[in-house]
Design a protein around this nucleic acid. Structure first.
Lengths: 240, 240
DNA sequence: TAAGTTAGTGTATATTTTACACTATCCAAG
DNA sequence: CTTGGATAGTGTAAAATATACACTAACTTA
């Protein structure tokens, strides 16, 4: 009698894509270009995280990678599941947000979303004419507007997860160009953690991890003492 | 054209229920009593984690609490989401496990599961004639047999999450009776972390958290020096 | 009252974290 | 070619934290 049950629930993934432009930490958000019914004024337009329904034969990780790829054409990017959001009314029944529901889910069904965050080198990123029917924009993390659904909460938790992972596993390199200086790296840490760090202590810490490798090369064309360049070497046993 | 999509995916929750009997760390597993078709020999019987499909109007957290309640009649228990497992074939298509699918999902649909772990005081636990059609058993964590689906992986990751949370947030008290001695608490830590701890250092650590409150009461009826009893006081800003 | 058993306690050492300031090197401008 | 502006790069002392370690106290039972 319990046989052949199904749930009336849709499953999506959402990605909190972090990027760093050398100064500020940003999040990639998408925006509806032309609301289908024209009923939304400029003010009512809301941005949202890139996300999509999970395909029937696709793992959650693959689905998140697909969302990321469709948006950025980037592949092999650091991508990590951090939480699943599943309140019954987190998506359904929000009158203002018809346009978003249109490409996300059946209007009668609730949707739970498995959230990932991802670190993208902004210089490699190519905005893509979207399968999301929206325009992608980098938004400074402290200037994220009110988003659709519960996406503000997802961004907040994603940032918390990023901070945690940055301090314990030092994943920050993923956001920098191939060759970087220690000052650039420090600035990245400071921006993500939102606090100043001590230069000498920071360098001590970084140098005792042996994934940071000095190159035979210095910064060029700067109007001050040029810094040593470094590259990051991934751990053997690490997946992406 | 992307409108009215739905996913062909079922959503369940699974709970890794940890219990401590004063000596060993245990996990609650359920076992099928009478395979419907009688085709499964003793050897083929597999145990599984308690879990269930998420109801249409129920949040994921509520769903996990319900599974826990249906199994133990316990309420207000520490319960934490730790990961969502969603490989396309993690449930569907496993021939040996028809009986489990019978009460879990439609045989044609894949199911993703949001995994929670939970800490249960074993002395308060009352095994319940099950809505799971199976018998519940506490199994020592190091003696967990091969389980159904990907449930061994879920147990492993649940244990890892428990360890993490124990060391950072000291949630272990949830597993002990109301009044406990520091030796009992230390043993609990040792069993979960699977390593010996230094008695004096452990006590120093515990005593500098001010959630552990000494009572005016000592152990009775033991054949050695009776220990001071303590109780745990929850943080103000903590949810369950 | 002696033997068995676990409770309970402090100190010295090692390790990790923090705080802190000056010299070096490049570029551009005068 | 000298000076000023800018960031790079470096070491040490003090504080805080973590570790290692062994004996006395209190109860029960024989």
């Amino acid at each position: 009698m319990e046989k052949d049950k199904t749930t009336e629930i849709d499953v999506s993934v959402d990605c909190v894509l972090f990027g760093f432009d050398g100064e500020e930490l940003k999040v990639l958000l998408i925006e509806q270009k032309n609301p289908a019914d024209g009923s939304l004024s400029k003010e009512q337009l809301q941005m949202a995280l890139p996300g999509n329904l999970v395909d029937t034969e696709e793992s959650l990780d693959d689905s998140a990678a697909r969302v990321l790829y469709e948006l950025t054409s980037l592949d092999g990017i650091y991508l990590k599941q951090f939480y699943t959001f599943g309140d019954p009314d987190r998506v359904r029944g929000l009158k203002d947000q018809e346009w978003l529901r249109n490409f996300r889910a059946h209007p009668e069904r609730r949707v739970i979303t498995v959230a990932y965050y991802s670190l993208v080198k902004m210089d490699e990123y190519q905005p893509q004419a979207s399968s999301f029917a929206g325009e992608a924009k980098w938004v400074e993390i402290n200037a994220v507007p009110q988003l659709a659904f519960d996406h503000n909460e997802i961004v907040d938790q994603g940032l918390a997860a990023l901070r945690e992972e940055l301090t314990t596993k030092h994943i920050g390199f993923e956001l920098l160009p191939e060759k970087f200086t220690l000052s650039q790296l420090q600035l990245l840490y400071e921006v993500i953690l939102d606090k100043k760090l001590d230069k000498r202590n920071f360098r001590k810490n970084i140098k005792k991890m042996d994934q940071v490798i000095p190159l035979d090369e210095k910064q060029k064309g700067v109007l001050h003492k040029p810094a040593q360049l470094f590259r990051f070497e991934r751990d053997e046993n690490e997946e992406i």
